[in-house]
């Protein structure tokens, strides 16, 4: 596929490589080293690093500032942007801010409800939804225009991403919803963490039946479990998450000191199986506060060394 932006991630995917992305959560403080250390640990093992935007509605160092820190150290960032906290003026303004630092990847999300976070009494915004944010970035990039219609000098050049959750219900609207995001202009997808592989493969089949895998790069999302407790928590407490009983049982079935290793095993096996799934163009490894394990996961999954995009251009 032809590339539309200077994004290295887009270039990788267009060249037909299986991409590997990961994410880092910014700190609850202003120490940039927290983010740069995490990035340093994984930079050679991934093609781009997402920075989460006040995930689970807990106030943190901003995604944009963190992305700038990555950019300054020569790491390719993906700016996660949720519509929960900012209206359309602020969103467009931050997109330009990111573009001024040549940040070339954006992930457009609606964002968790503030009830989950540290300011449950706060007002949410949701002036735009994720669908409209996708359209906004596309309008700004491809037509060089603001939502208000005025011209942008030096428009942003961003590879446009969004999330997809194949596991939320009703299941039958999840593929049409992906189609709608593609119609809005999305170019890559990072999915919800996959534990129910059968269901994910069924979703992918429905994606292929509609030819959607040819229209968008789908990166399969994985998160290694650290403990059996985490598996149970994700199964029972995180909405839209599908953790089958056998996965929880597998984690519980090993002694406590071996559970982390088992979690990594499950993650690696998931990647290996999904490498064979037609339409999966890469992996998004969300090792929540466990970034040091990303290199091992990438290596054991046979995804290391990472190809160099320069070699293809």
């Amino acid at each position: 596929m032809k590339t539309k932006t200077p994004s290295k991630l887009e270039k990788f995917l267009a060249a037909g490589h299986l991409a590997v992305t990961s994410e880092c959560g910014p700190p609850r403080g202003s120490d940039a080293a927290t983010i740069t250390k995490k990035a340093e640990m994984i930079r050679d093992y991934v093609d781009a690093i997402n920075i989460t935007d006040n995930q689970t509605s807990v106030t943190r160092l901003s995604s944009l500032a963190s992305c700038i820190h990555l950019k300054l150290m020569g790491v390719e960032p993906t700016l996660q942007m949720v519509t929960r906290d900012r209206n359309r003026i602020a969103l467009q303004s931050d997109i330009l801010g990111a573009a001024s630092f040549d940040i070339h990847n954006i992930l457009c999300l609606s964002g968790d409800h503030q009830q989950f976070g540290d300011c449950p009494q706060g007002q949410n915004v949701f002036d735009l939804d994720s669908m409209q944010l996708i359209q906004t970035v596309k309008l700004m990039r491809d037509e060089g225009k603001f939502l208000g219609g005025d011209e942008i000098k030096r428009p942003p050049q961003m590879f446009i991403g969004a999330a997809a959750n194949p596991f939320a219900d009703p299941f039958e609207i999840r593929v049409p919803r992906l189609a709608k995001k593609i119609a809005a202009g999305v170019e890559f997808i990072q999915t919800q963490c996959i534990y129910n592989l059968d269901k994910f493969e069924l979703w992918m089949k429905l994606v292929r039946d509609r030819g959607l895998h040819e229209k968008v790069y789908i990166l399969a999302g994985v998160t290694p479990f650290k403990t059996a407790g985490m598996a149970k928590y994700m199964k029972n407490r995180v909405p839209g998450m599908d953790v089958p009983d056998e996965v929880v049982e597998r984690m519980s079935g090993v002694p406590k000191e071996k559970q982390a290793e088992e979690g990594i095993n499950i993650c690696v096996e998931t990647i290996q199986r999904l490498k064979e799934c037609e339409g999966v163009k890469g992996f998004h490894i969300m090792a929540i506060e466990w970034e040091e394990k990303v290199p091992e996961i990438v290596e054991r999954s046979g995804l290391y060394p990472r190809p160099r995009p320069e070699a293809d251009s």
Partner: peptide, 29 residues
């Protein structure tokens, strides 16, 4: 919809209920 979304549901639909309140139906479902 708790987020007032006009383009379909978010990813937090929970067995037809809203992710933030099990007593409330997901409007988009």
């Amino acid at each position: 919809c708790h987020k007032g979304l006009v383009n379909g549901p978010c990813g937090g639909t929970n067995n037809g209920k809203c992710e933030i309140d099990e007593a409330k139906d997901c409007a988009w479902t």
